[in-house]
Design a protein around this nucleic acid. Structure first.
Lengths: 131, 131
DNA sequence: GCTTGACCTTCCCATATTGGGAAGGTTTAG
DNA sequence: CTAAACCTTCCCAATATGGGAAGGTCAAGC
């Protein structure tokens, strides 16, 4: 199976597969005599694993950790759970930051008449002291 | 006032001030005979404006729009409010994505025993069909 | 007046994670 | 055999910023 077929089978684009190989996230794929990469079931499995983790917002280094645990038959589920909890904490921190922005903007927006006049508390707040 | 003092006065690093000038977000600063940039109150005001908008998560192109409205005495507050609302919508979309990740991870994490055994629903879910 | 340290300048490189595309080789179907 | 559809590597792009090098300038102390 060549890279295009592997991409179609896993949802990971060919570009990304090459990139993952380049940064060492995955093992270099085997090559045909002509230099084409070829992928087996095991490779597809790994790519699907990466795709799943990526959808949950894990960064490349974290995915690398998860892959290592995945391959480690002697892992403890506690290790996996810890990584997951750390990631949850980071996501929630980010959410809180974004929510704080939304709250501020909603508040300002609520006070803005939104008509043809130029006066606007949103713009005005940007002029004020850096809070 | 030179760039270091302007940075201290506004919270925008010297590096960022130069970058903002380079991409055309702000007007090129005046120069001394020796080539040093110098900044006046008006410049500081602009930098503080940018800093405020940045803290609310606006991207550079959006800040550019906001600056244009700020300088436009004939703006309508409706225009500002529209930009704000669009930005709120984007932030909330991002929040929803992150929250969805958190929910999934919490669910998986809840089912993970987190002990010394290797079995882990989190890892297992990454192996499954790409949902 | 000179030295020294703290500034300033521009230029290049790096980040993380892709996507786009060019130039050129390979495979496959007709 | 040809044409299309692949594949390869390499370079450039994006965001918004930081780091650092090489070199010029300014201000303070001696």
């Amino acid at each position: 199976m060549n890279i295009g077929q592997a991409a179609a089978a896993t949802g990971v684009t060919a570009k990304r597969i090459r990139y993952y190989e380049q940064i060492g996230l995955i093992e270099p794929a085997g090559r045909t005599d002509a230099g084409y990469r070829h992928f087996g079931e095991r490779d597809l499995h790994t790519l699907r694993f990466i795709q799943s983790a990526r959808r949950l917002g894990f960064s490349m280094p974290k995915i690398s950790n998860l892959l290592a645990l995945w391959r480690d038959q002697n892992r403890s589920s506690a290790d996996v759970k810890r990584l997951a909890k750390e990631h949850i904490a980071e996501l929630e921190l980010k959410i809180a930051e974004l929510q704080s922005m939304v709250d501020t903007l909603r508040h300002l927006s609520h006070k803005c008449s939104g008509d043809a006049r130029p006066d606007c508390p949103i713009i005005a707040s940007f002029e004020g002291e850096p809070s």
